[in-house]
């Protein structure tokens, strides 16, 4: 059922995440209680927001099929489909 919720959520690994206007994807994820969403390429260790200002590239997600997007800099938009990224996000 499509309702008011649909205009203020994006999909994250198949689940709706609510956000406020102007919030970044990363901020919305943290507000929803998600602290990590990527694993490192070598040791598969958990990563989420570290610097929060676009420098460290730790918070990478796949946004509408595009890998290596920084959750901290990506404005949350209704209807986005976001998924966790494994490895480099690229298929060799």
């Amino acid at each position: 059922m499509r309702g008011a919720d649909d205009t203020t959520t994006f999909q994250f690994d198949g689940e709706p995440i609510a956000f406020r206007a102007g919030q970044s994807v990363g901020a919305a994820l943290i507000a929803a209680g998600r602290l990590s969403w990527r694993t490192t390429r070598v040791g598969e260790r958990p990563r989420g927001i570290f610097c929060g200002i676009g420098v460290c590239f730790d918070c990478l997600v796949v946004v509408d099929g595009r890998p290596n997007q920084r959750a901290c800099l990506t404005p949350a938009l209704a209807g986005m489909t976001i998924s966790t990224q494994s490895g480099t996000g690229w298929t060799p």
């Binding site: 390429r41 590239f57 990478l60 290596n68 490895g87 480099t88 690229w90 060799p92």
Partner: peptide
Amino acid sequence: FVLVTAPVGPR
């Protein structure tokens, strides 16, 4: 200058 991309593996 040198530019560094996000990791893409051995491409």
